[in-house]
Computed example of a mutant assay.
Amino acid sequence: MRMKLAAAAAMALSVMPLSASADGEVNIYSYRQAYLLEPLLNAFEKETGIKANVVFAKKGLAERLEREGRNSPADLVMTVDISRINDLVERDLVASVDNDTLENNIPENLRHPDGKWFALTTRGRLIFASKERVEEGEITTYEELADDKWDNRICTRSGKHPYNIALISSMIAHHGEEETEQWLEGVKDNLARKPQGGDRDQIKAIAEGVCDLAIGNSYYYGNMLNDENQRPAAEAVRLVFPNAEGRGTHVNISGIQLTKSAPNRDNAIKLMEFLSTEEAQRIYAEANTEYPANPNVSPSGQVAEWGEINPDQLSLQEIANNRNAAVKLVDRVDYDNL
Rank of each mutant, 00 (worst) to 15 (best):
N267Y: 03
S298C: 15
D331C: 03
S300G: 11
L329D: 00
I319V: 14
T259E: 02
G255V: 04
F274Q: 13
P299A: 02
Q257E: 08
Q317E: 15
T259G: 05
R265K: 15
I269W: 04
T259V: 03
G255C: 04
E286V: 04
S276C: 14
Q257P: 08
I283L: 09
I319P: 02
N296I: 02
A268L: 11
Q313W: 13
A262W: 06
Y284E: 11
T289M: 15
Y291Q: 07
D312V: 07
L258A: 03
I319F: 04
L275V: 08
I283E: 02
Q302F: 13
Q257V: 05
K270T: 13
Q281N: 03
I269A: 04
L275D: 11
L271I: 03
V327C: 08
A293T: 12
I283T: 09
S298G: 11
A285Y: 09
K328I: 04
E308C: 15
L316C: 06
R323Y: 09
A304C: 12
N264R: 12
L275I: 06
A268N: 07
N324D: 14
L314C: 12
E305D: 09
E308F: 12
E305Q: 06
I319S: 08
A293W: 03
N321K: 08
T277V: 09
S315T: 05
G307T: 00
S261M: 14
Q281I: 03
R265N: 13
G301W: 01
A325E: 06
N294S: 14
L275N: 05
L271D: 10
A326N: 00
N321R: 11
G307V: 00
P263S: 11
G301D: 05
E279R: 09
A325Q: 05
D312P: 05
E279M: 07
E290A: 13
D312K: 05
P263R: 14
I319R: 09
A326R: 06
E279I: 07
P292T: 08
V297L: 00
G301M: 00
P299N: 04
S315G: 01
A326C: 05
K270L: 11
P263T: 11
L316W: 04
E290Q: 12
T289C: 15
E318R: 15
T289S: 15
W306P: 03
K260T: 14
A304I: 07
N267P: 08
D266R: 12
S315C: 04
I283R: 06
G255D: 09
R265M: 13
F274Y: 15
P292K: 01
S261T: 15
A304H: 09
A285L: 10
L316N: 07
R332T: 09
G307H: 00
F274D: 14
V327A: 05
V327S: 02
A268D: 13
N267S: 12
S261F: 15
Y291N: 07
T289L: 14
E278Q: 10
Q257M: 12
E279V: 11
N321Q: 14
A268Y: 05
R265D: 12
A325K: 04
A262N: 01
K270A: 10
N267E: 08
P311V: 07
S261E: 08
E290N: 11
E308N: 15
P311T: 10
